[in-house]
Design a binder for these strands. Structure first.
Lengths: 340, 340
DNA sequence: GGGGGTCTTGAGAACGTTCTTAGGAACGTT
DNA sequence: AACGTTCCTAAGAACGTTCTCAAGACCCCC
């Protein structure tokens, strides 16, 4: 069947002895006589015809693609989101393309701008840092956009966010129930969206339960990575004697586990550890990691649905959703945790 | 500046009082008088002009995009590849889009076919399973393609592969040097490219060192995941008494670590464990995992360069590269492994 | 048997860009 | 003063598709 040469509607039409319009109609399921349809399909097969995406896009204004922008493909929480989103958009007839932007807001701005060239019908973005420039670029974009993460309240964009504060509250409550009192936070950079939210959440939770927050119990890692968590925990142990550590995400918490082991502290007997995001890394860790499920899969799902709605109805009212957190208890906080 | 309405070259040209051709020339760096260039740029700014990607693509035949198809975004080895590739293609002026296909060859075939519609200028693909249909689709594609992974020898495609057999040889050699004799393999599905290669490599290595290969020491997990490794190792321990376990990738090996801990075996004292791919997961594990570096970063880099070359010179001779493995020794095989 | 309807098909415009071709102005040379 | 060069700019075709519009064929019913 398939010829090697690139073919187009005109060639197919010529071969079938019909007009270009008819070929297009047949191939797109329009009405046509059985006889003509058969001739067209045969000709298309023989020529190995494949429609050209850019020509179709130019004509229709649609790409049937949705872009998911993630800051760090190495973070398992984004992996979870990718998996969820892929399924949802595929069901609605869109292809998902993933764009890894890096942590720099400049790259994200470039991406948002470039999408205005018409690479995709919509954008799902979960920015690590929200700068005024980024907000400006997002707002100015012609493209339907749904932001996963917290936005300034005045921004008129569909938005699904986690509730870090409540999530940390769950962790603190659980730790206090286990008799812990010196509950430290190994945070990521505080100029990021999750970093600032988790710092505030930590302080609020301690206060709520009548524990004094102290600078000693808060350390800031250089990123949301395993290695950064490792180093930051070393600093923490040099300056304080926590009996519990909350990592601002699972990777940081795993880094803390590592450093605690190296420092000869037993987990959870000497120090309990809690992660956040409840990703595969939490289950995979030794001991397995109690983790705050911030609903990454639910967030991704809600965001994807919101985006599809927005694409189909650009004038729909702006929706802002908050996903409630939950706690997954594992070995790192209770000696006799249930095993899978 | 930016108007909200979508604009095009004709609008810019009208506003600047010049022809469409001149606007295009100015914006693409062609020669033009300073005066005209200035008028054009001002008009473009005022209208918030953004060129349309599909129109440009239709005219030029280029998208300046490269697609990377990965079977499983959750596998850290692909994360490593994505990171590497992003940098290389960006330097050459391409945008990278990642497509997550799932393990089903059918999805991969769909992707390859759809790319013939002109979504990208080239494809980087690392198939888990190579079926005749997939080979057929890859060969029939008009698009420049580089395959990361082993291909049937008759396929005329640029290709970069790992050397699993030698890699497993390194692991076995190292384990034997540590006094191990009953060296088991926790493999992934054997109908996959890496699965079959690693099974063959295991048998060859045992034979080479004068150890008898036995079915008891080989178990096959349902996938290359942490959970599958966990379960498969449980089966292994029920049927044999290994003093060393090689996981066909790091996730399987981490699963083995977990199961060994649950079964009360000490690592590395009772059982040594080696992973493959040398990903972040190996360093993150407790104890940290000795792992065979199959050169995923190097492979990705070489493949990206090959693809760019192929795009720029479609008639270049077919290149097949093999990346040599290396062993990263950590705590899971030697009691006193060096710590980072 | 004629009028009005439905159904099938084709011609051609349009989407927004790039690039070829060629016209005209300015300038230098003979 | 005529001619050749060079530079700048404009006109218009082309990429491949979809979709509107109109024309023709056919059928039904009064």
């Amino acid at each position: 069947m398939a010829e090697t040469k690139k073919s187009n509607l005109a060639l197919v039409a010529a071969r079938a002895g019909v007009s270009v319009a008819s070929v297009s109609r047949v191939l797109n399921g329009g009405s046509a006589s059985e006889q003509l349809a058969k001739r067209v399909r045969e000709a298309a097969d023989e020529l190995g015809y494949v429609p050209d995406a850019s020509a179709r896009t130019m004509r229709t204004g649609r790409t049937d693609q949705i872009t998911l922008a993630v800051a760090d493909v190495g973070n398992p929480v984004y992996v979870q989101m990718m998996r969820t989103v892929t399924g949802i958009v595929a069901k609605a007839g869109y292809r998902l393309v993933v764009s890894s932007t890096g942590a720099d807001p400049k790259d994200q701005i470039d991406l948002v701008r470039s999408l205005n060239r018409g690479y995709a019908d919509g954008l799902l973005i979960s920015p690590l840092r929200i700068t005024p420039d980024l907000v400006e670029a997002l707002s100015a974009s012609r493209l339907p956009i749904v932001v996963i993460g917290t936005l300034p309240p005045e921004v008129e964009l569909d938005n699904v966010r986690a509730d870090s504060a409540t999530g940390i509250g769950l962790a603190v409550e659980h730790l206090i129930a286990q008799g812990r009192r010196r509950i430290a936070l190994v945070n990521g950079p505080v100029d990021t969206v999750p970093g600032s939210a988790r710092l505030a959440g930590h302080r609020a939770a301690l206060e709520r339960f009548g524990l004094a927050a102290s600078d000693e119990l808060e350390v800031t890692a250089t990123g949301f990575t395993y290695r950064a968590g490792h180093r930051a925990t070393a600093r923490l142990l040099a300056q304080a004697e926590p009996d519990a550590i909350i990592g601002a995400n699972d990777l940081l918490a795993v880094g803390a586990l590592k450093e605690l082991a190296a420092a000869g502290r037993r987990v959870p007997e000497d120090v309990a550890v809690v992660g956040m995001d409840d990703t595969d890394a939490a289950e995979l860790a030794t001991p397995s990691l109690t983790s705050v499920d911030l609903g990454s899969a639910k967030r991704a799902k809600a965001a994807a649905k919101l985006l599809i709605r927005r694409i189909e109805d650009p004038d729909a009212p702006v929706v802002r959703q908050v996903i409630a957190p939950a706690l997954s208890v594992r070995e790192s906080t209770v000696p006799e945790a249930p095993r899978a």
